[in-house]
């Protein structure tokens, strides 16, 4: 299967930090089952650092690999550092993704940011935030992707 890099295949086949954290301090969930991707990230926070992180993902190979990679990138990092990790950073850490996967399957960092936001909201007595639905793609977007 040549479409994915070796790193993507590794994270797809041996995903790191799969699972859920009971009594998580923050949960970020986003996606849309119609598009085929839902990512859920759980974090445990201690001294403003990500003490533990786990994920569950419904989606394609890229969706699973990006979820796994983002957990590995931010485990033990401060919340501020975690917030600076973007979807592009995750894709780069995986040695890139096929263009068609850059949009819908590359949302793991967004899910992480949501988890941090959820943690802050809970601390402020405003959480939990719940799942965020991402919009479905429109036709014009397909054309662009096809030519990319």
């Amino acid at each position: 299967m040549p479409v994915y890099s070796e790193k993507v295949m590794d994270h797809f086949q041996n995903p790191r930090n799969v699972g859920e954290i009971e009594n998580a301090d923050g949960v970020g969930e986003l996606g849309n089952p119609t598009c085929g991707d839902i990512m859920k990230i759980y974090i445990k926070v201690k001294d403003d650092k990500i003490d533990d992180i786990k994920f569950k993902t419904f989606g394609c190979g890229a969706a699973i690999a990006t979820s796994s990679m983002v957990t590995e990138l931010v485990k033990g990092k401060t919340l501020e550092e975690a917030e600076r990790v973007s979807n592009e950073v995750v894709a780069e850490a995986l040695d890139g993704l096929p263009p068609v996967k850059m949009h819908c399957s590359n949302l793991a960092a967004d899910a992480l940011h949501l988890a941090v936001e959820d943690y802050k909201a809970r601390k402020a007595g405003k959480g939990p935030l719940g799942r965020v639905e991402t919009p479905e793609h429109d036709e014009s977007e397909h054309d662009l992707l096809e030519h990319a």
Binding site: T34, G36, G59, V100, C104, S105, H137, E141, H142, L145
Partner: peptide
Amino acid sequence: GSACTSKILKS
């Protein structure tokens, strides 16, 4: 027949 395998991202 999933969206991700379709190349046009539609199921």
